[in-house]
């Protein structure tokens, strides 16, 4: 199993404890979004922090309406 998949599972374990009104499935998507961009940041030298923020921001507007 890849590191990112392990982290996803580890973080998702705590989702059940959230008291606020939050769509857990949506939160899973947000988490995956961060993890994949974060992995890309460490692996792809040409992918900058600013690129990651821009892409995440755009995607967030798409998935959280």
């Amino acid at each position: 199993m890849e590191i990112e998949e392990r982290i996803i599972l580890e973080i998702e374990k705590s989702f059940e404890e959230i008291q606020e009104e939050i769509d857990k499935e949506l939160l899973k998507k947000v988490n995956k979004l961060f993890i994949y961009k974060s992995v890309k940041l460490t692996e792809d030298k040409e992918f900058s922090n600013r690129d990651a923020i821009n892409q995440i921001e755009n995607k967030l507007y798409d998935i959280i309406k």
Partner: peptide
Amino acid sequence: YQEEKILKYLLALKNIYEKTRDEE
């Protein structure tokens, strides 16, 4: 605002990460 909703998710996620990190 949509941003408020997004921030709610981001803050929740941030709290989970911080908690998981500290516990780990």
